[in-house]
C-alpha cells in the first residue's frame, strides 16, 4: 500500500483579494459626486489663494529681481522696495522666540511625560492645550504691559556684561549713570519673548506626545540596569524622541514666523538691517503688511502680496520638513511595538 503525495506547489496568489464589485446605488453615486464636488470647491479655494499669491508675486519679483530680497528700504515713492531688513527682523524675532521656547518646551514636555504624578498628567496636558488656545493679542498685551520693563532690564544687563557679542550690542552708552530705558524697549527681543509664549505650547505638545510613546520595555531595562531617572531619560527617551523634538521645534518656528498682532503691538517699526536684537526698532513681514496695507496702491499692494507669498513659502517649507521629521519618528514607534 502506498500513499501518493501531491507535489505541486500551492498557488501563491490564491489569497489575492477579490474585487468587490457591488451594484452602486443611486444614492451612493450622488454621495461620491457631491463629496467630490465639495473637495473640488475646497481645492479651488485653497489652491486658488496659493496660485493668486504666486501670480501676484511674479511681476514684482521680475521687476525688482534679486534686489527684492536684499534691499532694506521700503520706499514705494522712490521705487525702492525690498524685504531684506524685514526678513532679517522676522528671523531675529523667531530665533529669540525659539531660543527661549525650545528649552522651556523640552523641559516642560519631559516634566509632563516623566516627572509629573500620573493624576496630574491629564490636567497638565489640558493646561498646555489651553496655553495654545489663548489668543495672540492677549500675549501681546502681556508682553507690552508686563514683560517690557523686566525685559528691558535684562536687555540692559546683557548689553553691559555681554556687549562684546554682536547680538547684544545696543547703540547706547552702556556705562551711563542713568541708562536710557527707551533704547532697550520695543525690540525684537521683547517681541520674541511674547511670541515664545505661543511657540511653547505647540512645540511642547508634539514633544510630549513623542516622549510618551517611548517604549516601556527599554525604559524599564534602563532602570533595571541601575540608571537614575535622568540616565534613563538621556539614554532612552531623548534618543527615541529626537524626531519629535526637532519636528515640534520647527512647527513652533513656523508659528513664530507668521505671528502678527503681538509683534505689531510691541515693536516700533524700523527698516534697518540689524542683528542687534536688544535695540529698539525692528520689523517683520507680517507687521510690514499690517502697517502698510492701508496706504498701498496697486503696485505696492502687489509688493506686499509678494512679501506675504515669500513668508508663506518659507512657512510651508518649514512645516513640511517638520511633518516629515515627526512622521519618521512615529513610524519608528510602530516597528518597535
Amino acid at each position: 500500500m502506498s500513499t501518493w503525495v501531491r507535489t505541486a506547489e500551492p498557488s501563491v496568489d490564491a489569497d489575492a483579494p477579490r474585487r468587490l464589485v457591488g451594484a452602486e446605488s443611486g444614492a451612493d453615486r450622488a454621495f461620491v459626486v457631491s463629496m467630490r464636488a465639495i473637495g473640488t470647491t475646497v481645492l479651488l479655494i485653497t489652491g486658488g489663494i496659493g496660485l493668486f499669491l504666486a501670480l501676484q508675486a511674479w511681476p514684482t519679483l521680475r521687476h525688482y529681481g534679486l534686489s527684492f530680497f536684499t534691499e532694506t528700504q521700503w520706499e514705494p515713492e522712490a521705487d525702492v522696495i525690498g524685504i531684506g531688513s524685514v526678513l532679517v527682523g522676522t528671523f531675529s524675532v523667531a530665533l529669540v522666540a525659539l531660543v527661549v521656547a525650545f528649552p522651556l518646551a523640552l523641559l516642560t514636555a519631559l516634566y509632563i511625560s516623566e516627572y509629573a504624578p500620573a493624576r496630574l498628567r491629564g490636567l497638565l496636558v489640558s493646561m498646555v492645550d489651553l496655553m495654545a488656545a489663548v489668543p495672540s493679542i492677549i500675549y501681546g498685551l502681556w508682553g507690552f504691559f508686563v514683560l517690557q520693563p523686566h525685559a528691558s532690564a535684562i536687555a540692559h544687563w546683557l548689553h553691559v556684561h555681554l556687549g562684546w557679542i554682536p547680538f547684544f550690542t545696543v547703540e547706547a552708552d552702556a556705562d551711563a549713570a542713568v541708562w536710557e530705558q527707551s533704547r532697550y524697549t520695543a525690540s525684537a527681543f521683547v517681541a520674541g519673548l511674547a511670541v515664545a509664549m505661543m511657540v511653547i505650547p505647540m512645540a511642547c505638545a508634539v514633544m510630549r506626545q513623542v516622549f510618551s510613546q517611548a517604549p516601556t520595555g527599554e525604559r524599564e531595562a534602563a532602570l533595571a540596569l541601575g540608571a537614575t531617572r535622568w540616565g534613563m531619560i538621556r539614554s532612552v527617551v531623548l534618543p527615541f524622541g529626537r524626531g519629535g523634538i526637532i519636528g515640534g521645534t520647527m512647527l513652533g518656528l513656523g508659528r513664530a514666523l507668521g505671528e502678527t498682532i503681538a509683534v505689531l503691538l510691541i515693536i516700533s517699526p524700523a527698516f534697518d538691517l540689524k542683528i542687534r536684537v536688544l535695540e529698539v526698532g525692528t520689523n517683520t513681514v507680517s507687521a510690514l503688511i499690517a502697517g502698510r496695507f492701508g496706504e498701498a496702491n496697486g503696485a505696492q499692494l502687489a509688493a506686499l502680496l509678494t512679501a506675504g507669498f515669500v513668508l508663506f513659502v518659507i512657512t510651508l517649507i518649514i512645516n513640511t520638513l517638520a511633518a516629515v521629521v515627526v512622521a519618521r519618528s512615529r513610524s519608528g514607534a510602530e516597528t518597535d511595538a
Binding site: G39, T40, V42, L43, T46, G47, I49, G50, F52, L53, G254, L257, G258, T260, S286, I289, A290, F293, L304, L305, G308, F309, L311, F312, T315, L316, I318, N319, T320, A323
Partner: peptide, 19 residues
C-alpha cells in the same frame, strides 16, 4: 486635495487677510 489643504495650513493669518 489633502496635499493642497495641508499646505495651506501654513498660510499666515495676515496673508489670508491681505488676500
Amino acid at each position: 486635495v489633502r496635499t493642497v489643504v495641508e499646505a495651506m495650513t501654513a498660510l499666515p493669518s495676515i496673508v489670508a487677510g491681505l488676500f
